[in-house]
């Protein structure tokens, strides 16, 4: 099928189940909250080598944060709920607790919780103080500036990782413009984050490599430079550049909605072709069919 002139390939994006957490960072100013969030989501593009995928979900106006200060919501996903607590403790401990004026709260209501503040409190060397208000347990850890405030525990829930779109362009500029438009549209969806820089990936990967030790390697089928060499190539003539957008989401619907918006945005900006990555449906729990998504109304949520 086509949207405007853009070809939508009849395929599906294959996504995996992950374990997600949402962390609300607040600070005296937006800038400090951003700084902490940036630091915390650094080196968090792909579980392949980072153990965790994370990015800012959105900024939160001060009237909506737990402590009425400017805030940022960060989503952090790992492959299992065994590893998430350690990642939260490490990243909050190293990137948020260290950052001036910040505090750190749980952003997910869930029956399933991991102890985070309750572990980080030991940094307080017995000077830490707990407070229980309206069912919420907070830890106050003394620091050189004053106190670092953090929730005792953080909710976790099953999440979806690996939602994706692959965008073909006739030129690098056009491809990138379409990809950026798609990423921006996708990011608007609540519960969605795009773990890669600005949401766009240029080094899409396939599973495995000729080298035994590598678990992933460049997706040669999509590399324009290998069109004539790779037997798997899918790069059509006239295509000069391809970008992938990876979207992780707290639930299936959010990923669907993000992909729907992404398809339309990329098509609007002149993508030549949109496809998606999958492993034949063998590995991931979720298959998002592009035609199904594209059919639904451009301006209406699924």
């Amino acid at each position: 099928m086509k949207i405007n002139k853009t070809e939508i390939v009849d395929t599906f994006a294959e996504a995996f189940e992950m374990c997600g957490a949402r962390v609300i960072i607040t600070a005296d100013t937006k800038q400090w909250a951003r700084a902490a969030a940036a630091s915390m989501t650094g080196f968090a593009t792909s579980v392949i080598r980072c153990k965790l995928e994370a990015a800012v979900e959105c900024e939160i106006p001060e009237e909506d944060t737990p402590d009425r200060r400017p805030g940022i919501s960060v989503l952090l996903f790992t492959m299992s709920n065994k590893t998430i607590a350690g990642q939260l403790i490490d990243r909050i401990g190293q990137c948020v607790m260290t950052c001036p004026t910040t505090a750190c709260y749980n952003g997910l209501e869930s029956d399933n919780k991991v102890i985070v503040g309750g572990k980080l409190r030991y940094f307080g060397d017995s000077y830490q103080i707990s407070k229980l208000i309206d069912g919420r347990k907070l830890w106050r850890i003394p620091v050189m500036e004053g106190e670092f405030l953090i929730d005792e525990s953080f909710g976790i829930q099953p999440a979806v990782g690996g939602g994706n779109l692959i965008i073909f362009g006739v030129s690098k500029n056009i491809a990138l413009r379409a990809a950026i438009a798609a990423a921006n549209a996708m990011r608007e969806v609540a519960g969605i984050f795009l773990p890669f820089p600005q949401g766009v990936v240029r080094s899409g990967s396939k599973i495995g490599a000729r080298y035994k030790k590598l678990i992933a390697s460049t997706n040669d089928a999509y590399c324009p430079t290998l069109r004539s060499i790779s037997s798997n190539t899918v790069v059509p003539d006239k295509v000069e550049a391809i970008y992938e957008i990876v979207a992780d989401g707290l639930d299936e619907d959010a990923v669907k909605e993000a992909m729907r918006r992404g398809i339309h945005a990329a098509a609007d900006k002149g993508a030549m072709l949109i496809t998606a990555g999958n492993y034949g449906g063998k590995l991931g729990k979720y298959n998002f069919h592009l035609h199904e998504l594209a059919k639904s109304n451009k301006n209406k949520r699924i």
Binding site: K131, I133, L138, G146, E147
Partner: peptide, 8 residues
């Protein structure tokens, strides 16, 4: 100082 927790 400003005891942030007190805001709650």
């Amino acid at each position: 100082y400003h005891p942030l927790f007190l805001r709650f």
